[in-house]
Design a protein around this nucleic acid. Structure first.
Lengths: 210, 210
DNA sequence: GACTTAATATACATGATGTTCATTAGTTTA
DNA sequence: TAAACTAATGAACATCATGTATATTAAGTC
């Protein structure tokens, strides 16, 4: 299983330049108004070189997005009970949310612009799918496949929790990561398990309609 | 106060044609790859006519978005205690969420594409701001301006709830409004007040880490 | 029916795209 | 180290969407 296929260093260099240029440009203007011209100029490459590697702008954007997000998926994936690594699956799920925040922290520049409305819209939906899988996993591991016993349609429940997560991540990025990844992962887990009102300590002050 | 400034019927007609064409095109391809050419073709207008009313594509998109969302804001705004309308402010907030779902239901085609990743990214953030205002209003009216007493940073709390709302709305649209607006508004309120786990009836089955 | 203004038809300059090909420069390997 | 590959460059070209301008026609207003 050849993990790395010995890719020409010039290609790696070119790709890096193009992606760095993209991130730089995204700080100034939205992805729609960025041209291939501008990207290659900032990368100090010829426009022809761009077309040597990508079909068009969309292709380029999707490939660079997928590269980052596949790395994220790998990092966030719960460890398998492999041959050597003995069963350490205890707090697996909350760990995976911590890893999520840590990864985003390490790529904050990129995530901040890509999740803003200047970024590639597909990035948000891809992120949402990734988080949804983790949320789903957390639920399943807690309650099993119990589809029916719920008092609320399952997809509404999952969408509520998932989207809440994305929103908290965005507001964290917009605050320039005022809090630590560990703090955020903890608060997010509590928000979901106890509900926003109880976590805020407002359960007495608020009028519950039932 | 002249509410309507007697706008030429030809202009109204043109605008309607352009916007209808946009929605049609958005069902097939994403907003980025739609050209002014295509819009005017589908609208059966000249390209010159487009530039008689809008500076460019972005201007057109923003104006049509704002028109719809300003109407939404008006509908969702809690009724003032006006001269005539006596104080009926009882369940004001949950009513406003119901109105939100009803409005979206009436414009489902538009909201569905605009909130998807084919739509205008600014539409999502604008919607988020609108919902955030309502969420904020609901909290304030329940607990007052109590900034400090919270066990969690206020902006995290608000972001959590707000984004959860948007997510539920999106999943509802994607399911082609499987449930009624009243059902959705009710479930959403319960999800927030009781928390997702309690609403699902899972508080016994799940391991609470505290 | 006269006046006003929106829509059309047409043309034009500009700029980004995507493709091609000969040439130069950097990597690999024999 | 020289030969063989292959990536990057430079330049040219056709195509297409954009944005602007203007004279003409059609629709709405008074």
């Amino acid at each position: 299983m050849s993990k790395k296929a010995k890719v020409d260093p010039r290609i790696k260099r070119t790709n890096k330049y193009l992606r760095d240029a993209l991130v730089e440009l995204l700080k100034e203007k939205d992805v729609t108004s960025i041209t291939i011209q501008e990207i290659t100029e900032k990368a100090e490459l010829t426009r022809g070189t761009f077309y040597l590697h990508y079909q068009d702008k969309q292709d380029f954007l999707m490939q660079s997005m997928n590269e980052v997000l596949e790395e994220l998926i790998e990092k966030v994936k719960p460890k398998q009970n492999n041959e050597d690594s003995a069963a350490v699956e205890e707090n697996d799920e909350s760990v995976s949310f911590l890893k999520l925040f840590e990864f985003i922290y390490d790529h904050a520049d990129y995530f901040k612009v890509m999740l803003s409305d200047r970024g590639l819209p597909q990035f948000r939906s891809h992120m949402t799918e990734i988080v949804k899988k983790r949320v789903y996993g957390e639920l399943i591991s807690s309650i099993g496949e119990a589809e029916d016993g719920l008092d609320i349609p399952k997809d509404i429940l999952i969408s509520y929790i998932t989207s809440a997560h994305i929103g908290v991540i965005c507001s964290w990025l917009e605050s320039d990561m005022k809090f630590s990844p560990a703090f955020m992962a903890d608060k997010l887990t509590r928000l979901t398990l106890l509900g926003p009102i109880r976590v805020a300590g407002l359960e007495n002050k608020i009028k519950l309609p039932y």
